[in-house]
């Protein structure tokens, strides 16, 4: 597969390490009353969609960017690649 890195252009997927669903960006608040339940769902449950999925790839053999790749799990077609940091900020993650 080829991933179009937003900063570096097209790169072979072999340069990257895969983590999983981009929902892993949304780490729960540990001080919430139901933190235990939230962390369990965050860590273990997956939509595992058959279709378009947003997922985390790490450019280990490159610039060490974490990327959010939107890829179809039925066809492997990639429709969007973003810097995970931008996505995280857009999701409201801060410090």
């Amino acid at each position: 597969m080829i991933i179009h890195h937003p900063l570096l252009g097209p790169r072979d997927a072999a340069e990257f390490v895969y983590l999983g669903d981009a929902s892993l960006i949304n780490r729960p608040d540990a001080s919430a009353d139901d933190a235990a339940e939230q962390f369990y769902e965050y860590q273990y449950l997956r939509d595992n969609v058959a279709g378009e999925m947003r997922e985390l790839w790490y450019h280990e053999q490159g610039d060490r960017s974490w990327l959010v790749v939107t890829r179809n799990t039925l066809t492997h077609e990639i429709s969007k690649v973003e810097l995970a940091r931008d996505v995280a900020r857009a999701n409201g993650r801060d410090r």
Binding site: V17, L19, L24, I25, R27, L56, Y58, E60, R64, S65, W66, L83, A84, R85, V87, A88, R89, R93, D94, R95
Partner: peptide, 19 residues
């Protein structure tokens, strides 16, 4: 060594991007 670095980059970029 490699895995810890990857994990820390994940924390830095994805969890706390404004640190």
């Amino acid at each position: 060594a490699v895995g810890v670095f990857r994990h820390m980059e994940f924390c830095r970029q994805c969890l706390w991007p404004n640190l």
